[in-house]
Amino acid sequence: MNQLLSTIVRTLVAVATLSVAAASAQAQGVTGDAQAGQKKADMCIGCHGIVGYQNSFPEIHKVPMISGQSDKYIVASLTAYKKGDRKHPTMRGIAGSLSEQDMADLAAFYTAQGGKAAPDAPKAADVAAAALVEKGACASCHGANFSKPIDPSYPKIAGQHADYLYVALKAYTVEGNKFVGRNNAIMGGIAKQFSHAEMREISKYLAAQESELAVVPQARFR
């Protein structure tokens, strides 16, 4: 069963990668500028620039760490919020105000802030949780150590906040809600095979892995 699921995931990934490539081709010529992105990040740092900051929608959870994510993933996620494929009222409002150049600049800024794995981050040893992660074939997309995605438009998930990962996984199972949910055929198919309790275990396991992600406080919050 796991082998079959992995095969299905690889097939879906191939199709999705072609779609990403097509979208990237449309955006050719848009190069991000980290210094310009820093000047545009005021709308971001109020949540992503405060250590331990929590969001209360759709439930209380830490906002994701975005420093150290790839620039293409940040652009892809902002585009998904702008299009409504990711349903979060605040993020959709913010993303809707951004041009392709704005997104590229912000992505360059946040990408430049990461890149070093935490040397003392604990390795998860939960065998049952590891089996769930294997069942979900997470490494098929998110790569070695869940920190080297096979496509740069996919996120690094190692070390990400467990409560955020849990909320994100649940969002892929939501249908027909105007304010909550994420439209992604690959992740929807994977997430729907797990119970909420299993999603929590997967999220805790991934959060315990060594990470390149971080919250980098801006000067006003240090």
Results as ranks from 00 to 15, higher is better:
residue 143 G to R: 06
residue 139 A to L: 13
residue 124 A to D: 12
residue 155 P to M: 03
residue 154 Y to G: 01
residue 164 Y to D: 02
residue 176 G to L: 10
residue 169 L to N: 02
residue 148 K to C: 03
residue 177 N to A: 13
residue 123 K to F: 07
residue 134 E to Y: 06
residue 150 I to H: 11
residue 130 A to Q: 10
residue 124 A to E: 05
residue 166 Y to A: 13
residue 178 K to R: 15
residue 123 K to G: 08
residue 126 D to Y: 08
residue 152 P to N: 14
residue 115 G to C: 05
residue 144 A to Y: 09
residue 147 S to F: 00
residue 152 P to G: 07
residue 168 A to K: 08
residue 123 K to H: 11
residue 137 A to S: 15
residue 118 A to I: 11
residue 170 K to Q: 11
residue 144 A to P: 02
residue 120 D to A: 14
residue 153 S to R: 12
residue 167 V to L: 04
residue 157 I to R: 00
residue 138 C to W: 07
residue 150 I to E: 07
residue 139 A to G: 14
residue 138 C to I: 09
residue 134 E to W: 06
residue 150 I to Y: 12
residue 175 E to R: 15
residue 169 L to C: 02
residue 122 P to W: 08
residue 128 A to Q: 14
residue 117 A to R: 08
residue 168 A to Q: 10
residue 163 D to H: 06
residue 118 A to E: 11
residue 123 K to T: 12
residue 153 S to W: 06
residue 127 V to T: 14
residue 168 A to W: 02
residue 136 G to R: 00
residue 156 K to P: 00
residue 122 P to K: 10
residue 151 D to A: 13
residue 163 D to R: 05
residue 166 Y to F: 14
residue 132 L to G: 05
residue 156 K to E: 02
residue 178 K to N: 14
residue 115 G to A: 08
residue 116 K to H: 12
residue 167 V to K: 00
residue 117 A to H: 02
residue 128 A to S: 15
residue 163 D to T: 06
residue 144 A to E: 13
residue 166 Y to R: 12
residue 116 K to W: 06
residue 165 L to H: 03
residue 132 L to H: 04
residue 170 K to P: 03
residue 125 A to T: 15
residue 131 A to R: 13
residue 126 D to T: 05
residue 151 D to Q: 09
residue 161 H to D: 14
residue 175 E to W: 04
residue 158 A to I: 01
